[in-house]
Structure formats: structure tokens, C-alpha cells
Simulated assay, not measured.
Amino acid sequence: MYNKMASIGLALLFLMLYTGTCYGGSRRFLTDFLQEFPTPGTGPYFDSTIPSNITGLVGKNVHLVCKVKNLGNRTVSWVRHRDIHLLTVGRYTYTSDQRFEALHSPHTEEWTLRIRYAQRKDSGIYECQISTTPPIGKFVYLSIVEPITEIHGGPDLFINKGSTINLTCVVKFAPEPPPQMVWSHNSEVINFDSPRGGISLVTEKGRLTTSRLLVQKAIQSDSGMYTCAPSNANPISVRVHILNEHPAAMHHGISSIQHQPPNLLLLVSAATLLVPYIYQKIRRKFDGAIGIRC
């Protein structure tokens, strides 16, 4: 049965080719026909090793890669699902937004959608689509993020006098670890070799870059605004308050309070003595009112 249908199909194919030749359109017909005719054996399919979740940075270029095996005569397109907008077909770009561009090197299996100067609004679902019948596609999930700088415990920190100021600055979502982490105090870059001494910095670079500023034996002049400024991310500030606590003075204050309560005791004693007298006065007025009423 299958061989019979195949024979009929081939016969129709040659007949149509011959008809097309009569009208001078055989080449155009052959191209259009093969575009839709399925490839014998295995058809095109996506390389599953290519990531489907992509994270990009605001202002940077983003590449969405689609790798197709056995593409044959099909074409590969990129579609944005937010507005069902056709962005690219093959090596051609079909959008007025010049930030989007189709990239493909001949004789390779990768079809790339490049987004220049990515914006937060570019986040969403994109589909790499093959022009089979019906079309088959692969979803790519794009998230555009901005580098984030944080100082633990901010925006205000309260430190006891004589304690160690420990400020930890963390940089997230940076395209690479910041080459520099600059700390300043009240708008002046901190000098780690200053006569004050006791100031140190420990920085650990990686996917999350952490910079820890340590100021030992805090004094009143150490209070104020501290700013952490990564070289490739936004700066962040925290205000440090130095508390002047004197345990001896606090103890003295408690002692003086303990010696002063006798004045309060005198007031309580006087009130206790007056209560019966006031009660008797109210009672007599109440009894008199009852007598008049009777």
C-alpha cells in the first residue's frame, strides 16, 4: 500500500514538473515544493543541550541561540510571544526595532537572535520556530536584570562606642565581578593607611561579590554615611550611628532612682490616709440625700 502511494506521488510530482516546464516555471515550483515536502527519514529537530533559560543585563547585548539538526530546506524564525511579533526569518530581520538582529554563519546549525542594549521590557518568552508543516518550535525564557548592590543591615546601623563597625556590601547580577570596590566615608574615599588605623577591607569575588569593611574600636568621628561603589554597578550607602554608652553612669543613674522613691512612698501613704476621710464625706452626703427624699 505504501509503495503504491509513493509511486502515485512520484508520478504526480513528475507530471507537475513537466507542466511547470511548459510554462517556464519548473525551477520556481521545484523550490516551493521542496520547501514543504518532508525530508525522508528523520526530520529537523532542536538540540536539547542549548539552554532554554537566559539571563541578560540591562544595557548589555543578549544572544538567544537556537541549534537545529537536519534542517534541510526549512527556515528558522524567531517570534516574540508578548505581541506575537515575527522578529527574524532565516538571516533576515523583520522588525523596525534595530536592537534586534538575526545572526547565522553559513554551514552551521546555530540560528541566533541578538538583542542590543537589552531593556527590562525585553524579558519574556521567545520561540525559535522551524517551518515544517505544521511548524515546530522551542521556547526560550529571557530575564533581563540590573546589577544590584546591597549593604546588610541598612539603611541605618547603630554601633556601640568601642565596638567594631562591620559593613558588608554585596553585588548581584553583575556581568562580571567588579574590578574595584570603592568605599567612602562622608563622601571621602577611605584611606586604609590613615593614622587612625584599625581599618581593613576583605573582598571575595564570584557570582556574588562580597566586600566587607571593618573599622575597629569605633569612635564618635566614625559615625556618618558610608558608601560602597562597585565599578560596574550602582553605589549604595548606609548611615552609621555611634552610641555613647557609659555603663558606670548608667549604674549610677539606677542607684539614684532607687534612693529617690521615698517621695513617691510619702504620696502613696498620704493618699491612703485620705481615702477613709473622703469616703465618710461622700457617705454622709449620700445619706442626707436619701433622708430628704424620704
Rank of each mutant, 00 (worst) to 15 (best):
K4Q: 13
L13H: 12
Y18I: 10
T21H: 09
Y23R: 04
F29Y: 13
T31M: 01
L34N: 12
L34V: 11
Q35F: 15
E36H: 12
F37M: 13
G43M: 05
G43D: 02
P44C: 01
P44A: 02
T49I: 06
I50R: 01
L57H: 11
V58H: 07
G59L: 03
G59Q: 05
L64S: 05
S77Q: 14
L87R: 00
G90P: 00
R91G: 10
R99K: 10
R99F: 07
R99G: 07
W111E: 00
R114C: 08
R114K: 15
D122M: 03
S131I: 01
T132A: 07
T133D: 06
P134L: 01
I136M: 07
Y141G: 02
S143M: 09
I148T: 11
H152W: 02
G153K: 03
D156G: 03
F158E: 13
I159P: 02
G162L: 00
E176Y: 13
P177M: 05
Q180L: 14
W183N: 01
S184G: 11
I190K: 05
P195S: 08
R196M: 02
I199M: 06
I199H: 02
I199D: 00
L201C: 12
T203H: 10
G206A: 05
G206Y: 05
L208Y: 07
Q220A: 07
Q220D: 08
Q220W: 06
G224F: 03
Y226F: 04
I236M: 12
R239I: 11
H252M: 15
S255V: 15
Q258Y: 09
H259V: 11
L264K: 12
L265E: 09
L267V: 08
A271T: 10
T272N: 06
L273K: 02
Y277T: 12
Q280P: 01
Q280T: 12
K281W: 14
I282N: 09
R284L: 10
G291K: 11
I292A: 14
C294W: 11
